[in-house]
Design a protein around this nucleic acid. Sequence first.
DNA 1: CTCAGCGTTCAAAGCGCTTTGGAGGTTTTA
DNA 2: TAAAACCTCCAAAGCGCTTTGAACGCTGAG
Lengths: 341, 341
Amino acid sequence: MNLKELAAELHLSQTTVSRALNGYPEVSEKTREIVLAAAQRFGYRPSPAARRLATGRAHALGVVFNAERNALMDPLFVEYLAGVAETSAKQGFDILISPSTPRDEIVTFGRLARDGTVDVVILTGPKVADERIALLSELKFPFVVHGRPPDPVGISFIDIDNFGAFQQATSFLIQLGHRRVMLINGEEHFTFAQDRSRGAAVAFAAAGLPSDMLDEHFMPMTAENAYRCARQALESDARPTAILCGSILVALGVLRAAAELGLEVPRDLSIVAHDDEMPAFPADQFHPQLTTTRSSIRAAGTRVAEMALARVAGQKPGAVAEVWPVQLIVRGSTAAAPEKG
Amino acid sequence: MNLKELAAELHLSQTTVSRALNGYPEVSEKTREIVLAAAQRFGYRPSPAARRLATGRAHALGVVFNAERNALMDPLFVEYLAGVAETSAKQGFDILISPSTPRDEIVTFGRLARDGTVDVVILTGPKVADERIALLSELKFPFVVHGRPPDPVGISFIDIDNFGAFQQATSFLIQLGHRRVMLINGEEHFTFAQDRSRGAAVAFAAAGLPSDMLDEHFMPMTAENAYRCARQALESDARPTAILCGSILVALGVLRAAAELGLEVPRDLSIVAHDDEMPAFPADQFHPQLTTTRSSIRAAGTRVAEMALARVAGQKPGAVAEVWPVQLIVRGSTAAAPEKG
DNA sequence: CTCAGCGTTCAAAGCGCTTTGGAGGTTTTA
DNA sequence: TAAAACCTCCAAAGCGCTTTGAACGCTGAG
């Protein structure tokens, strides 16, 4: 059943039926009701393709995702996607996933923007120098950012307070008496890694401690990388008594390193990790349960999708700039620093 | 630049240009080259929407994913999706993600099938009585299945050898002297859970052991559930000496239960888990490293996408029915059963 | 020399929807 | 009472592509 047939059935023109269905004011309430009822009865569903062609709007939202062999953000991504999906589905928006490797990500974005397959894209994990943002801005293609854009002016984004989270976590460790602290951070070119780095540094400065007590490492946040890094540090003479982990996965690697070296957590080593609340990977299911800085990646996904849809509906870029607070949850993986041996 | 303009530019008809671009034989090689070159030069890209409307084919592949609060398959899903994305991108197919809760999943599938938003859907996690399969079959909408359909006749699917994997793993434990074995399985209504159940049962039967030595539990495979279940069993008088885990997440919960009870793995308790190779969650990053039955969820995603595309290209349903072998990888979480106290 | 046959190209008709520019009919205003 | 102002509704023109049916020029057979 298409519009033409439905219109014929009702002895009305396509115009009127279309308008009735789409809530235009030029049609009387009475006919609208009749049309709506008939549409319902015949199970009429407008063809998305036709509508798309006629309006030039795709009614779809694009998400580019990293399909590289070892997609680091994997478990995060689904949870995030779930959030995005939830709200966009409510508004009848489709979600188009475009796989891409970091190398040709920029091409992928260009294609999305020019093809008209989607009306807006969501950009994740902004970098210190982000050419995707540059490209989309130049093309004047609507987009919103999940994370902190390097230059937020005129860009709608939502981010968690990475700075505050790591400042708080670091201060907490310092208060517990820890002096040699290691930070296993994400890759340097991500803005979130920079923010976290600054947070930790500021905490040290505030406590009047020299910044070289903070041993910071940037790397892709995998368990494997974290294991290697932690193992090496923990075997050294001046081993850290506390490790700040960029993610739960990092904590997994650190835990393994500690276990292998016979170090007990939290007696010999304190661990605090950032937790994005992946239900599959709950911080409280570890042994010991992990002290974390917690934020909901899913809620972020929900919000960023809302923003994207608002953007399509005409909201100005830069209208939204939210930074969500992050909560420190103290569990069993942190304790007072061990007495100096 | 659209087709009309390009055609005008070349002093050719739209027909010819269209055919040249789409590789139809009715156009001479010479003109084809000219057209291709011009298209390249002007950066012409056909409008997907228009093509879709004209051909009735969406050039897109649908994946329904569970956006329920605690999406259990989360970490699996991305890795799987990465596989799907990889191959479908190669063929220029878009991937449409439709969020859905289990409750209205069937509606979602119906909509996808009728709307023409996608040409084929991939169905994941088939159940013993699967109404999605019933619906799609009835609508004669192309689909392929990832996992084992209850009635595979006339259905293209790919699955891993869940039966063989768990038979092998169970036999291995029996050979190590384990007699009280627990199996923490997925939910009963999934075909994969049934297959695994049968695999374990057959191993016991083959060893001439009574089936009640196998303590089997069906549940959503979360760390939390597994923790509870394992904890309870390990505290009981006749505690199991080995636990078969349906997933790495399940193993996480079991490890925690063991640690809390002061049980050492593998001395006091052996663990073998099924591993779908999520790079984010590697079995060899645990302590101890986990003995696993391993299969690549990503490769499965790749293959199932290929199948889906073949299906669109006209391949008959039921043409593919692959069952992939699963390898048992012995690592540090298994050992001979403890002497009877 | 004519005509069938072939290889190329084209004009035009959709695909199913939205939207512009009116056209009728009814009500209000002067 | 006539004109202006509405309220409803409609015919038709796209949106940018594919595809059918036909036309064109050329070659080789009769």
